[in-house]
Amino acid sequence: MSESNKMAKGLTGTNRAILIAAFVLLAAAIGYAIWRDSTPAAPDPIAAAGAAPSDQLAALEARTRREPGSAEAWTALGAARFDLGDFAGAGAAYEKAVAIAPDSAGLWSALGEARVMASERDPMPPQALAAFEKAIALDTKDPRARYFMAVKKDIGGDHKGAIEDWFALLADTPRGAPWEADLRRTIEQVGAIHKIDVAARLGSTQARPLRPEEMPVAARAIPGPSRSDMEAASQLPKGQQDAMIQGMVDGLETKLKANPADVDRWIMLMRSRMTLGESAKAAQALKDGIAANPAAAGRLKAQAQMLSVPGA
């Protein structure tokens, strides 16, 4: 059976419309920023690659030697060192990263956090505070910097002010963010220590729903194509629509061969294959995506699980 016949067999009218819409808007979809990917410590490169920590750390250090001008390489190394409890080492790596990418609020707040964790005596060393202030100056919504600036208030005796800031952060927190539970616990504990009643307010303050652009690629609803796009597609016979989609999928694979580091496109390819009923090809896309991006293995597997890719 030819590839076009296989595709036609498993492709419903609804799936065909979804895929056409997806590819029409692929350029907009690529470059999305889910909340966790907006901070440098998001991926766990040690766990994601499945290698021994020492081996993976050595690989990340080797990458910084090969790519000393890459903020991404230094960020990955900083995240790995942080996860291993080497906070001073993480700070040193993040310092390299911010020197290369000084306009990244997430990098500055990661540096501040590493400096806080590396400090044995001062709970808010001046160098850490300077990093958080830089992050806030770049992005007033940076969650990590906001959290630690409230910590500074608490340390300085302004416990109510700190709690107010944490509540404001909680209200701005995307639902399911990894810091939500810790943030609630902090508010509860500081309130208990200083006899500030937070129970009722804590119960009524909920993290906000995810915005469409914050949804994971695999789960996010695809915006509909424009009226002209739909009219153009609807004028094509079914066979030509299927050929169009096959060409789009082939084009996506071609782009991945040219740039295999584009994780979003691997996720899009898995989604397309599953929508076409080509689960074996989706599984192969997962394997190929991980092989090309071992540090993103955790994210790729998580997205593949949401898509029900075999072996994810």
Rank of each mutant, 00 (worst) to 15 (best):
I100P: 01
A258H: 00
I222G: 01
I34F: 07
A29K: 13
M244W: 02
V263G: 07
K257W: 09
A97H: 09
M215T: 10
R208E: 11
L183Y: 01
K281N: 05
Q189K: 14
G13F: 13
D139A: 08
N15D: 09
G239R: 03
R201P: 05
K238S: 07
K152C: 15
A99V: 03
A92F: 08
A295Q: 07
A295N: 03
S70Q: 10
T39I: 10
S54V: 14
E213F: 06
H159C: 10
A192N: 15
T205N: 07
I187Y: 07
M270S: 06
L107Y: 06
V24Y: 15
P216S: 09
M124F: 12
M1W: 00
E278R: 09
E133V: 04
L236M: 10
L138H: 00
Q303P: 03
D142Y: 11
D122S: 11
A52L: 14
G224D: 14
L252R: 00
W266A: 05
G203Q: 03
E95T: 15
P125Y: 08
I20N: 02
M117V: 09
T254E: 05
Q206G: 00
E120N: 14
M1C: 03
V249S: 05
D158H: 06
A71E: 07
D250A: 15
A130Y: 01
I155P: 04
L269M: 04
A52C: 09
R299S: 08
I155Q: 12
E133R: 12
P174W: 02
E180M: 14
G69S: 09
P53L: 10
W74F: 06
T173C: 07
S4N: 12
A177G: 07
Q303G: 02
K195R: 15
I46E: 00
E3I: 13
L26I: 01
D103V: 14
G50A: 11
A261P: 00
S308W: 13
Q206S: 11
I155C: 08
E95G: 05
A207P: 02
P143T: 14
V151W: 14
P225D: 02
D86T: 01
I222Q: 03
W266D: 01
E72Y: 00
L138A: 04
K153N: 10
I187A: 10
M117S: 13
R146F: 10
P225E: 01
A192K: 15
A92I: 13
A33G: 08
V217Y: 07
P45E: 06
M215Y: 10
S104D: 11
D172S: 15
A232F: 01
D142M: 03
S109M: 14
F132I: 08
D103Q: 15
R299L: 04
G176W: 05
L183C: 04
P143G: 12
E231K: 04
D139N: 06
A76C: 03
P123Q: 09
A181T: 03
S104A: 12
A27Q: 11
P294F: 05
A93T: 07
R273S: 05
K9A: 15
I34H: 05
L77D: 06
I136P: 00
P43I: 09
A280P: 02
A88W: 11
L307N: 12
L202F: 02
Y147S: 06
G50Q: 05
A93Q: 03
H159A: 14
L183T: 08
V198L: 02
I136K: 11
